[in-house]
């Protein structure tokens, strides 16, 4: 059936999500205060913001779990309030807290969800074992979920969202609380998902995660979108990464500073006591030149690291105030992508 029969605009097929002016109020708290979002089909869209910014509330409205107080939202051209049942046939939702049945086993969970989605008895069993295999849960299939780790629960949750192969998947903080290894696995899964043609909308507290996965990002704060754009645009607006250097012989710090400014062509900041130099790094490729210049100038490095802009800095730049409640794992934002000990 063609979507045109529903009377939607001709280009609506392009937008997986098209929301404008979404508002949700809980008592005095305007959790979502006029959010506009447009997500192109087949892309990964990141919604970035601190705890309590309104990310989950926004997703809940788009996924028909909450009714918006004002504004409209369409999923592939279908209104989330008037055509909620249709919208539910087009989406998969994986929440911040795994929405699976604790008392049942992994297989039983997937079989129940498959049956609810209209699969036959045998088909549901096959689908369940197929998904468990795909998500590396086949061995734990019969165990009750009580003994599952956080990562296993998330994977099962994601598997459950994929039963009907929905063209749009909402992932609400898919990696919050996961250890780095499980996190990387989750990212992998999400990337594979996009390859099959799914549109993914994910929320995260970590700039790093949005950077890794998303094509476009909306930064949300106090229920409003404060910035929106392609990942690179957004990062450029925040500023570049910075290079941190520590040299072995403190008395050479002035010489080292001169070399840095010559090679990178930028002002640097020094802290002589620690023998540390910090300089903005606009072009990572120049670092090789810098290291050669150090070697030629007889400056020996003790340590070197690169630091990306943190969520804190993004917020400071975009909103003029820092992150109010620091996320539980703020250290994960501080991305020391490279640390070399001399």
């Amino acid at each position: 059936m063609e979507h045109a029969s529903k009377g939607s605009a001709p280009q609506s097929g392009v937008w997986a999500v098209d929301a404008s002016g979404l508002v949700k109020t809980f008592g005095d708290n305007r959790a979502v205060d006029g959010v506009d979002l447009r997500v192109r089909a087949g892309t990964v869209y990141g919604v970035l913001g601190p705890n309590g910014a309104g990310k989950t509330t926004t997703i809940s409205m788009l996924a028909t779990l909450l009714r918006p107080d004002a504004g409209t939202a369409r999923i592939f051209g279908h209104d989330v309030v008037k055509e909620a049942h249709i919208v539910r046939q087009l989406i998969g939702v994986t929440g911040q807290y795994a929405s699976v049945d604790e008392t049942l086993s992994a297989t039983e969970n997937l079989v129940v969800f498959s049956r609810l989605l209209g699969l036959g008895r045998a088909e549901a069993k096959r689908k369940a074992s197929e998904l468990l295999e795909e998500f590396g849960l086949a061995e734990a299939a019969k165990r009750p979920l009580k003994n599952f780790s956080g990562g296993m629960r998330r994977r099962l949750d994601l598997a459950a969202s994929l039963i009907a192969q929905p063209p749009l998947i909402f992932l609400d903080e898919p990696t919050t609380g996961l250890d780095p290894r499980t996190r990387a696995q989750m990212w992998d899964t999400i990337r594979r998902l996009v390859k099959t043609g799914s549109t993914v909308m994910l929320t995260t507290q970590y700039l790093d995660e949005a950077d890794q996965l998303a094509d476009r990002i909306a930064v949300i704060d106090r229920g409003r979108v404060v910035a929106e754009g392609a990942v690179d645009e957004l990062k450029a607006s925040v500023g570049s990464s910075s290079l941190h250097l520590r040299i072995q012989e403190g008395q050479l710090i002035e010489r080292a500073r001169r070399i840095v400014e010559q090679v990178l062509g930028a002002q640097s900041v020094i802290s002589p006591e620690a023998g540390k130099i910090t300089a903005p790094m606009a072009d990572a490729d120049r670092v090789a030149d810098l290291l050669i210049a150090f070697r030629q100038g007889g400056v020996r490095l003790a340590e070197m690291s690169v630091q990306k802009p943190t969520l804190d800095e993004v917020f400071l730049t975009l909103t003029g105030h820092g992150v109010k409640e620091p996320p539980a794992q703020s250290s994960a934002d501080r991305n020391e992508t490279e640390v070399m000990q001399a």
Binding site: M1, H3, G13, G77, H85, I86, P167, T196
Partner: peptide, 19 residues
């Protein structure tokens, strides 16, 4: 993950009520 592409949202047969 399945290799075949998904049916795009606009081309699915959908109804707004459960029978």
């Amino acid at each position: 993950m399945n290799d075949y592409p998904l049916t795009p949202g606009a081309q699915r047969a959908l109804k707004n009520h459960a029978s």
